[in-house]
Design a protein around this nucleic acid. Structure first.
Lengths: 234, 234
DNA sequence: GCGACGCTACGGCGCGGGCCGAAGCATCGG
DNA sequence: CCGATGCTTCGGCCCGCGCCGTAGCGTCGC
């Protein structure tokens, strides 16, 4: 039997506004310093330090020191999936509709294009996913995803290479990820990460400082039109 | 942007031993009374009542009154997935290995066969899943699952019918579920639920009172051998 | 109607933990 | 070497909340 006390510990770690904000900020998959995380959480550095120590001690975060900075990132894709589950519930089961989050320009940009741990999400993520489905690269069978027999070749033709399976328990190659803004599945898993990396390497998108939002460059808009038949993003 | 405060609320609800125990107990998909849940959590009825009210108010639980009893169940499959995510992290990232759960006879039975929300898990769940893969009914492509083109016919031949897609956002038909004891994926989703229902209706398995564990009947052992080529379970 | 039972509402106790100020350690720049 | 910066440790304040005792409300059996 899974220890329910251990479950409660996990919940308690998420169940504090400052820590929840930190975990949410780390959902872009990058590593942030303790100071930056203190900023997003809106607490003093000492407070943040304590929170981060607890999160790291529980193996939810991985810490790496570089000079006088300490970089923190989510310990594993499994932790990202956990946070994602929480976000999905948080977005859907609002007991009081009046508490809906405020929508501003930053919110709009997030909805248009952003990262979700290590893959594309928002309008861009869904559009790219739809395009890959339409082109017969991947298929979503009612909530589960697969790569079609010759899908890998077509991906290679697009210049997208997927890492060989890691030695550990294999992480899903092609996983659907239902996110809060679009309420529709988009491409996640190892393939989703590869696509996202490719978009960034080609400078089709750039990260917006201090946010999970992505900016689609003119070069990216051109690539989206010509290679994926997508217009009107960015 | 997803409200991080709302995220913290969700975490806080899980982050209390009594509530975590209740949510864990409800992972078998059945509805339990407030009194039963108080027993599971090891707290007085008044305390349990307060917890359940909070969980219901946050839409994590659905409540149904029947006479002088109040039956509580997880509000949705999404909530079950959330709890499952927490369990997965709880089982994997033990900071202190000495805190591993005690293994007893009850634990052994749980590992052999149990329900996971609404589908089969444990050794039985994995064995049945493997058998369905070997018979070409379903396929798991590196973590994502699909039903093969003629898989539905073969399922119908086995007497297993899957409900027509619900009107709401479709729940995955064939989803892999990685659980804590086997560390291997087993069949979940609507199809997993249909398989589990079929096993129970045919009296191949029976629920063990007060537990998520399942008992495999002699009739069930025969069916497993003849129809799925599975031996040595139960 | 009456008692038993399941559950809920209220009040008060006590503990855990979040918060920041002050101080202490490392690291970098000059 | 010295100051600035990033981060952590310690200590004390205080709020939140989990807990149960008591009491109240609805439902069932007789």
């Amino acid at each position: 039997m899974v220890n329910t006390n251990r479950m409660a510990e996990i919940g308690l770690l998420i169940g504090e506004p400052a820590r929840a904000a930190m975990l949410g900020a780390l959902m872009d998959g990058r590593a942030l310093t303790a100071g930056e995380l203190a900023g997003v959480a809106g607490v003093a550095p000492q407070t943040a330090s304590g929170h981060l120590a607890r999160l790291a001690e529980a193996n939810l975060l991985a810490v790496e020191r570089q000079g006088r900075h300490r970089y923190h990132r989510l310990a594993s894709p499994e932790v990202a999936e956990l946070i994602e589950s929480v976000m999905r519930i948080a977005a859907v089961t609002l007991p009081d509709p009046t508490r809906m989050p405020v929508t501003g320009p930053r919110d709009a940009q997030m909805r248009l294009a952003r990262t979700c741990y290590d893959h594309l999400a928002g309008g861009l993520g869904v559009a790219v996913t739809d395009a890959l489905v339409a082109r017969g690269v991947i298929a979503f069978d009612d909530g589960a995803g697969i790569v079609t027999p010759n899908g890998m070749e077509r991906l290679a033709a697009l210049g997208i290479a997927v890492d060989a399976p890691t030695t550990r328990v294999t992480r899903p190659l092609c996983r659907p990820c239902l996110d809060w803004s679009e309420r529709r599945p988009h491409l996640a898993g190892r393939l989703g990460a590869a696509v996202c990396s490719h978009f960034i390497e080609q400078h089709w998108v750039t990260r917006v400082a201090g946010s999970r939002a992505l900016h689609v460059t003119p070069k990216g808009q051109q690539a989206l039109r010509e290679r994926f038949g997508i217009a009107g993003i960015g």
